[in-house]
C-alpha cells in the first residue's frame, strides 16, 4: 500500500475491525486551530502499523500522524502547518506535555491514549 494512496484510506472509518488501533487526542493552539476547522481538540484513531516504503510497514509514529493530519483534517493552507515531512518551523509539538525533541521527534511511536499538541508561538502583549 503506497503512501500516495487516496487520503480516506487511512482514516478512522476504514480500519478493519480486527486491526489493532491507536486512539489519540490531538490538540491545536496558538492560532493553528484556525487551519483545522477552528476546532482545538480532535479525537482520532490510527492503525498501529502503517506502510513504509516498498511494501514494508512501520509502527505508527508522529511523522505519519503529521502527514495524516495534513491529508485528512487540515482544511486550508498546508504550507502553514507542514514543511516537507515535518511541521513548519515555529510550531512546537508536544507528546503528553513534553517537547517532542525529548521523545524522539517524528520517530516517536504513538501509543493508545497519547495526547499530541501542536502549538504556534504567540506574539501579542
Amino acid at each position: 500500500m503506497p503512501d500516495s494512496q487516496p487520503d480516506s484510506s487511512h482514516s478512522d472509518s476504514n480500519l478493519s475491525q480486527n486491526e489493532p488501533k491507536i486512539p489519540l487526542r490531538v490538540e491545536f493552539s496558538g492560532g493553528l486551530e484556525l487551519l483545522f476547522s477552528n476546532q482545538r481538540s480532535h479525537r482520532i484513531t490510527l492503525p498501529s502499523t502503517v506502510p513504509h516504503g516498498d511494501g514494508t510497514t512501520k509502527p505508527t509514529d508522529i511523522t505519519y500522524l503529521i502527514d495524516w493530519l495534513r491529508r485528512n483534517l487540515l482544511k486550508e493552507r498546508a504550507e502553514l502547518f507542514t514543511d516537507g515531512a515535518t511541521v513548519r518551523p515555529g510550531i512546537l509539538v508536544l507528546v503528553n506535555d513534553s517537547d517532542w525533541e525529548l521523545e524522539g521527534e517524528g520517530d516517536y511511536q504513538l501509543r493508545p491514549g497519547d495526547e499530541i499538541v501542536f502549538i504556534s508561538t504567540l506574539h501579542g502583549g
Binding site: G30, G31, L32, L34, R77, E79, L80, R88, P89, G90, I91, L92, D99, S120, T121, H123, G124, G125
Partner: peptide, 25 residues
C-alpha cells in the same frame, strides 16, 4: 532553540488584528 524560524506572518496576528482579553495579559 525552540523556534529557529519565525511563525508564518499569517499566524502571527497582532492584538489589533486577532484581539486580546485584558485579564489574559
Amino acid at each position: 532553540c525552540l523556534f529557529p524560524q519565525p511563525p508564518a506572518p499569517e499566524l502571527a496576528g497582532s492584538c489589533e488584528e486577532t484581539g486580546i482579553f485584558g485579564a489574559v495579559t
